[in-house]
Design a binder for these strands. Structure first.
Lengths: 241, 241
DNA sequence: ATCTAAATTTCGCGC
DNA sequence: GCGCGAAGTTTAGAT
């Protein structure tokens, strides 16, 4: 069968709705259904959602998204790799399953306003600037952004507590742990840096102490207190976008 | 003007595309556009995305989502509260803006396969079980889930380091900090608990030490090491769904 | 498959 | 508005 996409139906009867959604599922197409539906989820958690108008999206990769009129996040969903099938209850029902972990999503429509099936191809990749990784590259390029005399020795250096963003030495030869954050940081980032410094001090069991430097645009007051408490340092740096 | 939704158009000409999207923007409707587009974003970060087939969703609340054929997350987006307008370049262009922080998203279509405009109403709220808050309620109902003799004294008790999930005393009268997690935890949760215990020890400057108990389904090995290092305890408990 | 941390995280609550 | 932490977080990278 040759599929001529897009195929769409406005105010379709139940049979036509099921035909189109089935077509999309069988051929791994992009499917959207707009209508009044109820949703049940059971898996890592469990949820129930009473009837309302929503847009349901099935992706070729097995993703299912249920979007209400509000919010950036879907109110219910199923991640990529799930298996979809039609139920035989109600006018249109979609069941989505996965294992590891076992999860099921059930969408039952009371009415369907519109169904559309598309064939999507997308070779392009997103290029993104202003990430933490970009900050790291800038510092490697110009270590003085951290402080004069700083010498990076490794990135993603492994410690017992995890990988350190940048490991290096200062002009006095002290070991330095640099933790990068692309935005204003709270207490969690301080604890993270402290874990790395602790781990490295144990590993090096050095006479010279290990310095911990947080590089970020800014810190909250509580985070600032924690920096002081734990003898850590802060160097302000904005991400570039 | 009386709006009769849904309004849809398959393989629309540019003028019809713009008409429908403009209608949706002006009346705060649910709009979907499927077609080949390029996307640029500039704000907290910056990104560029070359042409590909995508589904673009405009929500009544000002959310914009650009979905490719893969992934649960949109490849580009704009959060709720943004303002959308048409550009006069290309056959269909949508610009979305916000302040605080200043961010702009630009979607330019090379071809439009389908446009749909819906009127969505959704009064229903999601009921969700199996959350951390549910675990807290279970423990308040049966404190022995933590340990025999445990007596909760407060939830969300404020400390200099933030609010403690459950604060209480053990059968010997020691202060106890309980940190809850609904899933397997890594190093971050241990640091969080340690911050709370530190803060309370400073606040109470007590002879009796403050106990820190992590309640979660399980812990990773590194987290387990950290628990030992910091003299914290672990009580296994599954969330109920 | 698990671990670890980033993310334009988003979201909700409190101040 | 900011601060803080939860989330069915998701995603990417490494082991």
């Amino acid at each position: 069968m040759t599929l001529q996409a897009p195929q769409t139906a406005t105010e379709p009867d139940p049979q036509r709705s099921r035909e189109l959604v089935e077509l999309g599922i069988d051929h791994s197409l992009f499917v959207t259904v707009f209508g009044r539906c109820r949703v049940e989820y059971d898996g890592r958690a469990a949820s129930t959602l009473a009837a309302g108008d929503r847009l349901v999206m099935l992706k070729p990769d097995g993703t299912v998204l249920v979007h209400t009129d509000e919010g950036q996040q879907p109110i219910n969903w199923q991640p990529p790799g799930c298996t979809q099938e039609l139920t035989d209850t109600s006018i249109l029902g979609i069941r989505s399953n996965r294992d590891t972990p076992p999860e099921e999503l059930l969408v039952e429509f009371d009415s369907v306003d519109h169904v559309a099936v598309f064939d999507a191809t997308d070779e392009s990749e997103l290029t993104l600037q202003g990430t933490e990784s970009d900050m790291r590259d800038r510092i490697l390029d110009d270590p003085a952004l951290v402080e004069p005399g700083f010498e990076p020795r490794a990135t993603e250096r492994e410690t017992a507590a995890g990988a350190v963003d940048i490991y290096g030495v200062d002009e006095d030869g002290n070991a330095v742990v640099v933790e990068l954050k692309r935005r204003r940081v709270g207490p969690d980032a301080i604890s993270q840096l402290r874990r790395y410094v602790d781990a490295l001090e144990r590993e090096l069991h050095a006479e010279l102490s290990v310095r911990g430097i947080l590089v970020a645009p800014s810190v909250t007051e509580r985070a600032s207190d924690l920096l002081t408490q734990h003898n850590l340092e802060f160097v302000p740096l904005e991400p570039e976008s």
